[in-house]
Amino acid sequence: MTEALTATGAAPSKGASRGPGETWPGRARAGQWRLSLAGFAALIARDLRVLVKMPSSFLLRTVLNPLMFVFVFTYLYPRIGAGHFGQVAGQSLATVALPGLVASAIIFQGLNAVALPLSMEFSATREIEDRVMAPVSHRLVALAKVCFSALQSLIAAVIVFPLVYLVPATPVQVHVSSWPALVLATVLGSLLAGFLGLLLGTVIEVRKIATVFTVTVVPLTFLGCVYYPWASLHTVRWLQVLVLANPLVYLSEALRAALTSALPHMSTLASLSTLAAMTVVLAWAAARTFTHRVLT
């Protein structure tokens, strides 16, 4: 083999040898941290653009489930003589379910806004490619996804709240007993939902995602203390212990404590701290699975 044929020999230089930096426009010359910040904002802006293009899909998946629930159980039932259905401690089902429905709207936004699209983008369409090739760390790409999901969760909460307050035929007893607890629970729940979505979206293959959705969403909702307070499960002790693994329980209970404190509820400290701990664990796990998925 001759010297000329080794791969690391002097490479011929053709064309103008202009460096890339000379043509970078102003902001791109900024330091890496500013670039990261700009990239992060652009990632959010991209998601926002996609959401604004199709607001109907966001609204439908947010509104339909709670609307049908309150319509059937809190509007229709009292009119067909089943008005006492679901009452707890003398409070109507509408009052019992309001915090729970807001909580489930927050949690399932994470699955819909992150898990489903991400799973598609990673395998079927590989659309994630351009975003993970942005000059920001991969964790920041993941965080942008979570933040945008959390934003959608907050919007979902704001939409669902008046819905479940106004539709029921029976009075809904709502009184904000602690604004800080309400805000903290909503924000923590929204972030938890985003990280949960990120975890599922990076771990689950796209062809299995429909099944996984069914086996997560249905039990999480029905066993998430959405339609009944956790305390009332004391008659079925094993279930009361079992549901403690469900993050939705803590969000339902935290919102119940903040909005409908007349009902039995977990202590705010217990529910919020567990919610925070679960968020941290999910964030750690999701960051690992996301990086693992991006890097081979």
Binding site: A30, L35, R46
Partner: peptide, 19 residues
């Protein structure tokens, strides 16, 4: 990115790079 138009694909790519 199938959720975006041709122009938006280019535009957001530039924005990711700090333009």
């Amino acid at each position: 990115d199938r959720s975006l138009s041709v122009w938006e694909n280019l535009y957001f790519h530039c924005r990711f790079f700090g333009f």
